[in-house]
Every structure is written in structure tokens, then in C-alpha cells.
Design a protein around this nucleic acid. Structure first.
Lengths: 229, 229
DNA sequence: GTATGCAATCATGTATACAACACCGGGACG
DNA sequence: CGTCCCGGTGTTGTATACATGATTGCATAC
């Protein structure tokens, strides 16, 4: 079997570090510095940077080099507005798939049970971490269950941005509790085959998530978004 | 001023040829053959191919090379389903912009006049050509008037696929007449500031376009889509 | 002290050489 | 006669050398 190419490796590594916030928005990414850090040569590094630029994770100015893309209040609003458009449609598709394919349905049923277990736990950092891990799995299950190729790709491309935002704005333990409840409600609607309800609930969830992000950023030092971009 | 890079040139050239159908779906695009055809070296050719792959215009298999992406009936349905999701939202945004920005409004008013002039002409190949040109300009105006960065990019990425489809399925002179009327109606709703009506009309237009494409393909030799992919 | 111009330096854009792998023949063996 | 193995050939993946343009810092003029 043929392993992943170096370009893949560099791409994955940078993507992860950007998502985790280890590479802050605005951080310069010169090709040579990446050559030194990754051990690959300029060609795969170059390809990784171009790919990240296509995904919107780095800004690429000709002759001026690459920087980790900045995050503005407007970009956050745009991101969530776009998700409001896509994700209800995706979850409708997933609802149909779950109704038609018992294996898919079982997968979502398992995740629902997971959310219920998390809800029963007492609040803690570990509980929040477990929730976000499961929520990630849930998001990917929605993506995988989306039949439309374009829709699937568009949502998948948005995920790194969402994840980065979560990690840049420090997550709110209080919010975890509400979010778990919202996910349970979404699962219930999906398992009941009620696509409209699932869509409406995920829309509400997104609205609340956006509100929480802005509230957290407003309360964070250095005026929030200034720090991000 | 600094001109476009060779990677940009190769990318633009291939994109145009794929859109026009000069490069048929499935056509092999080896890097060396493109080096010979474009005069650029492998590095920019490579970058152009990767960019086209990210846009979905070429399929790229590791170690196996690139081919012009194939078109299946399902891919066409997916494309139009996705456009049904995005374009109504975009035209709502454009409607607001036109209401707020007189220059934008004037631009759309000019195009409305253009559609009216085309409607008045007697059917001919030249008239159809003029219509598609103006429709292209209209589509780009919608894209430019879309504020949301993600939405704008998503629609822009879809355009080459739509254009290619139009050129692969031979356009229908009868359809031109109906399509002109639909565009006039969309313009009217947009200029009236009625975003809902504009969205609904563009949705109807997309439904009709998809129907026309499948009707044309069904009547074409070699069973239509077999030829495309 | 400030502004301007120049040159050293380093970044990216490009070309090309080398390495590793996949496909396609022919030929030997069962 | 069919199958398997193996080398040839051409492809992509990677590394690196070269060309070109941008930034930076300093020296100099005002």
C-alpha cells in the first residue's frame, strides 16, 4: 500500500495546528521556515500552502508569502450565516438516510446515547472535552450521510474554521450543558424521521453557538477579535 | 504592476477549455503533455492542475495522473440541487445591495433593459448567443453583489460546472425564449426590492433549466450522459 | 532630525534533475 | 494454452538550483 504523500502530511500537520490555535491568525508561514520545521522540501510545502489557501485557512499574497488567515467579526458572522444555510439541508438529507439505512440509524442512536450519558455527568472540564469529541463525531456523521457531493464538500470545508473558532474563543463550561441538550433534541428529531424539526433545531443551535462565541470574545482580554486578526 | 503568474495563465487556459468542452470529460491531462502545450514548466502546470482539482474540474488520482472530470446524471442533479440552495440566498443578498447602492441598482437596471432588447428580437442563433452572454454577466453581478464571503466563493466555484454543462448539452433555441422571460421576471423582482419573489423565481428558473438539460440529453445521440462521462 | 534613495538580503516564482512507483509488454514455466 | 514473473517505459512525487521581485536597513542629503 502506498502511504500518504509528504504534501498530505504537511497539509494535515499545518491544518491541525491552525485548528488548534497553535498557529495563531496572522502568523507568517514562509516556505523555508516550513521546510525547516517539517523536513519536507519546498515543493510539497508549497502544495500544502496552496491547498490551505484554497480552504481559506491561510491568506496567500503573490510574492509576499503566506500567513495564517485572520478572523474578523464579519468573517465569523459570514461563517455562521453560511452554516445556517447548509447544515439544515444536510441534516434533512441525513434524516432520510437514517430512515432508509439501519446501520446509519444505529450510528446516530449510539451517539444519542452518548449525549445522554454526558448529560448525566456532573460538569467538569473532562465532561466538556468528551462532549466536543462526540459532537465532532456527530458533525462528521452528518457530513458522511449527506448524499449531495457539493453540499458535503462545502460543509466539510467549513469544519476547520468552526473548530478553530472554538479553540480560539475559550469554550464556556456553562454553554456545554445547553449544547448537550440541543444535540439530544437534534438526534431525537433525526431518529424520529422529522427532517423539518431537525433542521429547525440545528438552526437554533447555530444561532446560540454564534451568540456564545461573541459573548465569550467580548469578555476576553484585549477586546476579543483584535487578538484574532 | 506585476502580471499574472504562469500558474494563473495555465489555470485560466485549462479552465476555459474545459468549460467550452474543447477538453472532453475523461480526457487525460498528463503534466508533460501540458508542458508541451503551454510552454510552462512542470511546477506551474502542477499547481494549475491541483487548483482545478480543488474546483472539481479535474479528477486527480495519486500516481495515476489527472483527467478532466466526468459528468454523470447524478452529478448534474447534485449541482442543480446545490444551486437551488445557494442562489436564492445570494439573490436575496443582491436584492438588498441593489436597494442600498444606486450604482449596483443601475447595473441591474441596465441588464434588465438588455434582456428586454433580446426578448424583442426574432429567434436566431446570434440572439441565443447574446442572451447567454448577458446571462453570464447577470450571474456574475449576483455573485459580486453577494456579501457573504463563503456564499460568494461557493457559487463562483459552481459556475464553471454550469457553463460546461451548457456547452456539452447543445443549447435549445426554444428554451432561450422562456429563459429570457424568466430573467426579466427575476430582474423585476430584484429591482422592486422583493427578495422573496426574486428567490422564488430563480428557484423556478433552475428547475426549468435542469429539466431542459435532461430533455436535451435524452434526445442526443449515444444516450446522452454516456457521452459525458 | 527627517526623508529619500540605494543596495544587500531574502522571499517567492520557475525550471529542471533525480527517485519511486504503475502500467505494459514479452518470455519462461507449469 | 494459460499464468506468472520480470524488465522496459513513462508517469508522478520530490528535491534543488536559478531568476525575479519585494522588504529592510543604512547612508546621505536636506
Amino acid at each position: 500500500m502506498t502511504g500518504p504523500s509528504k504534501a498530505d502530511q504537511v497539509h494535515a500537520q499545518l491544518k491541525e495546528q491552525i485548528e488548534l490555535g497553535e498557529l495563531a491568525p496572522g502568523a507568517p508561514l514562509s516556505e523555508l521556515s516550513l521546510v525547516a520545521r517539517t523536513g519536507a522540501s519546498r515543493t510539497p510545502v508549497r502544495e500544502a500552502l496552496r491547498r490551505l489557501a484554497a480552504e481559506g485557512l491561510v491568506d496567500l499574497a503573490p510574492r509576499l508569502g503566506a500567513r495564517v488567515s485572520r478572523v474578523s467579526a464579519q468573517s465569523v458572522r459570514d461563517l455562521f450565516e453560511f452554516r445556517q444555510l447548509l447544515e439544515p439541508a444536510a441534516i434533512r438529507s441525513a434524516t432520510e438516510r437514517a430512515a432508509a439505512d439501519p446501520a446509519v440509524r444505529q450510528d446516530f442512536a449510539d451517539m444519542r446515547a452518548g449525549f445522554a450519558r454526558i448529560q448525566a455527568r456532573t460538569p467538569s472540564q473532562e465532561r466538556s472535552r468528551a462532549f466536543y469529541e462526540l459532537a465532532d463525531r456527530f458533525d462528521w456523521a452528518i457530513i458522511d450521510a449527506t448524499r449531495n457531493e457539493h453540499l458535503r464538500r462545502a460543509i466539510a470545508d467549513l469544519r476547520p474554521h468552526t473548530a478553530r473558532l472554538r479553540n480560539l474563543s475559550h469554550l464556556d463550561p456553562q454553554r456545554t450543558d445547553v449544547s448537550v441538550t440541543e444535540h439530544l433534541a437534534i438526534c431525537d428529531a433525526l431518529l424520529a424521521g422529522d427532517g423539518d424539526a431537525a433542521a429547525s433545531r440545528i438552526a437554533g443551535h447555530l444561532t446560540e453557538s454564534l451568540r456564545t462565541i461573541f459573548r465569550n470574545l467580548a469578555g476576553s482580554p484585549s477586546d476579543g477579535l483584535e487578538l484574532l486578526g
